[in-house]
Amino acid sequence: MKKSVGIIGANGYTGSELVRLLAFHPNVEIKLLYSRSKAGVKISDLYPDLEAVCDLVLTNEISQVDILFLCLPHKESRNWLNENPISDETLIIDLGNDFRLEGNFGNRNFIYGLPEIYFNEIKESKSIANPGCFATAIQLALLPLAKENLLKDVYTTGITGSTGAGQSLQPTTHFTWRNDNISAYKTLNHQHVDEILKQVNVLNNQEVELNFVPWRGDFARGIFTSSIIGCDLESETIYSLYKDFYKDSPFVKVSEKPIDMKQVVNTNFCVIQIEKQGNKIAIHSTIDNLLKGASGQAVQNMNIANGWEQNLGLNLKPVAF
């Protein structure tokens, strides 16, 4: 029997991506698409790409389901749960940032949903805080070195597509501004830094300083990050560390060839490459911000929490051209 799914905030980018993924998932059935602002509107009228995928109408009325995804703006999930009591038996996966640093909420304790380090905890949980997009890409680049206590000062740059800013139109997401343009934002002050350090410092035995400069790119989706650290290990040793760390992680690929973002767009994969010059290494990582950085990882967490194969419903080919 298929499990019933509800998506709160289904009218946004991450919500609509969940519709696209879950409509073809063999073990679930979408029963609820919730939106306060678009109630009464058919989801395919908002997203024509869903015309042949889902014919559900958005509603502002709640019904109980087995699995609930919260795709609300940041800092709204906690308030929504306070206003809408949900059964303790319902699996909740929050794609916002409300529970990433502090997971306690009533009877629930939200587990940080990065499967590559918290698989066992996710498997036993009914409350999962999905990681942020930049946080996912950067953590996956750094965690193998953190395990070996090799991190101290980290300098990271990362570029993201316009969908990372959400659906609401802003001056920096308008086509005439974004096209043929690039800019830095939230320099050394991005909201994902605390999230990254909390997890990295679990493995690393010394405090890590992360100096992160994010960039806005003139493309719709995807993230590419590069992190530079001091390291005296040989390249072969470093690659062995990474391949061993991710040997049981089906969505992380370690490449010894140059990588690019199109290898991961429209997939739940993270691809990592390391380059070494002297006593410095650069760790490149790339993900789709809406999939491994949001909705795809949420489905991966759903699969783990239900005891299903991690890649169920996530066998997606990258968009190469």
Score class of each variant (00 low, 15 high):
34 Y>L: 03
85 P>Q: 05
65 V>K: 13
32 L>G: 06
35 S>N: 07
28 V>W: 01
53 V>C: 11
71 C>E: 11
73 P>L: 05
74 H>S: 15
28 V>G: 07
90 T>A: 10
37 S>Y: 09
64 Q>N: 14
27 N>I: 00
42 K>H: 12
88 D>G: 05
56 L>T: 03
64 Q>D: 15
55 D>W: 00
83 E>W: 00
78 R>M: 05
84 N>D: 03
84 N>P: 02
62 I>Q: 12
57 V>L: 00
73 P>E: 07
83 E>M: 03
60 N>I: 00
34 Y>G: 03
78 R>I: 01
41 V>Y: 06
64 Q>V: 07
59 T>P: 01
32 L>R: 08
32 L>W: 05
28 V>Q: 06
38 K>T: 03
79 N>Q: 11
82 N>Y: 01
64 Q>P: 11
76 E>V: 02
70 L>G: 08
60 N>D: 15
91 L>D: 15
74 H>V: 11
88 D>Q: 12
39 A>I: 03
63 S>A: 12
54 C>K: 04
67 I>S: 11
61 E>Q: 13
73 P>C: 05
56 L>N: 12
44 S>N: 15
45 D>V: 01
42 K>M: 11
40 G>L: 07
31 K>G: 02
53 V>Q: 14
79 N>D: 11
73 P>I: 05
87 S>T: 09
89 E>G: 10
48 P>I: 05
57 V>F: 00
43 I>A: 08
29 E>P: 02
77 S>F: 02
66 D>W: 06
69 F>S: 14
47 Y>L: 02
32 L>E: 11
91 L>W: 15
77 S>Y: 05
36 R>A: 13
27 N>T: 03
32 L>S: 05
66 D>V: 03
63 S>F: 07
59 T>W: 00
84 N>Q: 04
34 Y>K: 05
48 P>V: 04
66 D>P: 08
85 P>V: 01
31 K>H: 06
75 K>S: 13
86 I>Y: 03
39 A>W: 06
43 I>V: 13
68 L>I: 08
42 K>F: 02
91 L>K: 14
44 S>M: 09
79 N>S: 10
36 R>V: 04
52 A>S: 14
78 R>C: 09
